[in-house]
């Protein structure tokens, strides 16, 4: 639901970057989205096209890189992959794990001209 404002934020950051890095057109945008970031890829693509219309990002390709969710298990002393926030450790069943990755929403890089 908030994909629209995320796309607006992406546009603002790209506009800032355009000023400091001197480019006038964006061809590709790479975003890293954690699998627990509550971002729907389809909604993101739909809103991306809509929001970028009439801007330097219009027509750019959106590449979404899904970052898998991992959490630190204190019992196993390692990061384990999880699919939900409340998942226990898949190795030992320990609960209350601390999320290490999976909730990020980042602009990684741009292909510009």
């Amino acid at each position: 639901m908030h994909e629209m404002s995320l796309c607006e934020s992406v546009l603002r950051l790209i506009e800032d970057s355009a000023e400091s890095n001197h480019f006038s057109k964006v061809k590709t945008v790479w975003l890293e989205i954690g699998s627990l970031a509550a971002v729907e890829p389809e909604a993101m693509r739909f809103n991306f096209d809509l929001i970028m219309k009439g801007t330097l990002v219009e027509g750019a390709k959106l590449e979404l890189i899904e970052v898998p969710a991992t959490a630190w298990c204190t019992a196993c002393e390692k990061d384990v992959e999880i699919s939900q926030r409340y998942d226990g450790c898949p190795c030992c069943g320990e609960t209350g794990l601390t999320l290490s990755s999976g909730d990020e929403m980042r602009i990684r890089e741009l292909e510009v001209v």
Binding site: L6, S9, M105, E111
Partner: peptide, 26 residues
């Protein structure tokens, strides 16, 4: 060359690393 394509002469595109949280302004 086009980024990732490494084909000189194809286009003028270049890569800009942004590495910023989308919510950084908020």
């Amino acid at each position: 060359g086009a980024a990732h394509a490494h084909a000189p002469g194809m286009s003028q595109s270049r890569m800009v690393q942004v590495e910023q949280d989308i919510l950084s302004r908020n």
